[in-house]
Design a protein around this nucleic acid. Structure first.
Lengths: 131, 131
DNA sequence: AACTTATATAATAATATTATTATACACGGA
DNA sequence: TCCGTGTATAATAATATTATTATATAAGTT
């Protein structure tokens, strides 16, 4: 688990051209020139988006003579989605990357009964009822 | 299902500050001033990221006197993730937004036996074996 | 009423992303 | 060996995103 890794994956997914490409690759692996035809985009545009997705770990590439064959790593995608949902359900304490947040979060919880954020205190009791 | 909707969600998730905020909101709903303290970010920065996430449908806001109370819509997140995995497993034909791609994809498949992308033909038989 | 707190928003500057154009390079065929 | 095909990459211009600073608004407090 790494925030940066999730960010890289979601950045890769958060672009319409790339989502369309990924959907096509989900049908079957394809060559760049095929994607070019089906998506009607310029070749450099396709290659650049494929590079982003490769770096995010979402596709594999394989050279075949002059061609390059790209395939969606659907298992990786499934796995990462599952992992992220677990991330959202995990305790703060179990996440090494959130030690600072966890510390400050606890301080907030300890200062109950005073409804002032400015002095670092807040009515945490009331908040818990609402949540 | 809408590509643009997915894109909006993934754009919102594809930023480290926002991912951290969402994780905190997964612990419990929080006020802006609390997020400010725990994340140690400036207030406008927090508000702006919250706005992005609200527009993506990932959080709800509720006014409470001067404060605003933000909550993660975990059910929506779960639902959208599930939907996207279904999107990747769906037939091209069942996706209304991909009629153009589907058409051109079929043309590609029909031109079997000729390994030339330039003339719109490709060795689709070979490709199917590999995939 | 004046002051403080909490939040949102506008304006700005800095940075990142995207698409196009131009170029380079590898491979196979004539 | 020269040419066409397929792909990657660099350079550029256009656009979008991000964080900060400054300001506005609204609600509680004295």
């Amino acid at each position: 688990m790494s925030i940066d890794n999730y960010v890289k994956i979601f950045k890769a997914l958060g672009e319409p051209s790339r989502l369309r490409m990924l959907k096509l690759l989900s049908v079957r692996p394809m060559y760049v020139c095929e994607l070019e035809k089906v998506l009607q985009m310029s070749q450099p545009r396709i290659s650049q988006h494929l590079r982003v997705m490769k770096h995010a770990g979402l596709v594999t590439e394989r050279k075949e003579a002059q061609r390059t064959f790209y395939a969606l790593k659907i298992d990786y995608l499934d796995e990462q989605f599952k992992e992220l949902l677990e991330f959202f359900h995990a305790d703060l304490e179990s996440l090494p990357l959130f030690t600072g947040e966890n510390q400050r979060f606890k301080e907030l919880e300890e200062d109950c009964g005073v409804a002032q954020c400015k002095e670092g205190k807040i009515d945490a009791v009331k908040i818990k009822q609402e949540a």
